[in-house]
Design a protein around this nucleic acid. Structure first.
Lengths: 119, 119
DNA sequence: TCCATACCTGCGCAGATGTGCAGCTATGCA
DNA sequence: TGCATAGCTGCACATCTGCGCAGGTATGGA
């Protein structure tokens, strides 16, 4: 298997066959970047707190999220905008209240790891 | 249950009872921060590629990781230093070669989500 | 009509972070 | 002893990102 791209084929390797295994394990670069972006969304304590609250409590209004997390309204709004743009959460308008919920199954799976570790 | 801290108790809420549920779901602030830091380590495409390679291929030398990921040696070394400081990977010296492997079970669990999604 | 509330946006700043380059140390082999 | 290789480190740079403040829009009630 010649999995090593041409631009790196000339380099020395220690365990040549393992390099091919590693390249196969890494997979498509776009796939890696997509997951890195996903992790990046969870890498902020504020956003992570918001998502943990939404994951276990269900649809929540922006003001309530602000009180629950101790953040101020603009910070929550900003965080939710990012998450909404990434397709992680979705907001439903009900009068002048907007309630958010998580719509991304993969993110929900990751949040499960945190919650399970809480004990 | 009066789970709302005193400094936020005066704020208006939309669904008061849900705020308490949310606070309970979020849990300890240190716990949230710890997980955010963990996610932060996986939020870089370079580090994520390294970890995916190590997770499925086993102990790998720095040079081989550099070839497999397309990064240059200092970048790989820097990334591994971060991961080692966080207790995620561990390096074993064998002659002048250092082979790294993953030693953090929680990170390994998260990597499983990426790998499972690869198909 | 007027006002309070719920949410959103833009701007500016401080802090953190990834990157490339040059150079250093240590190991193994001839 | 001399040299090439494996790996590590320090510095300087550009970039990004979260945060707070001020202000804007829209909904609902008096």
């Amino acid at each position: 298997m010649h999995l090593v791209p041409a631009d790196r084929a000339g380099r020395r390797t220690i365990d040549g066959h393992r390099v091919c295994d590693a390249i196969e394990a890494i997979g498509d670069a776009g796939h890696v970047r997509a997951w890195a972006d996903r992790f990046s969304l969870l890498a902020d304590p504020g956003r992570l707190a918001l998502l943990l609250a939404l994951d276990r409590t269900g649809p929540l209004a922006v003001s309530d999220l602000a009180v629950a997390t101790g953040m101020n309204d603009p910070a929550v709004s900003q965080a939710l905008r990012l998450l909404r743009a990434a397709g992680v959460v979705e907001g439903r308008k009900d009068g002048r209240v907007v309630r958010y919920r998580i719509v991304d199954a993969r993110v929900r799976g990751l949040l499960g790891h945190c919650a399970a570790d809480a004990g």
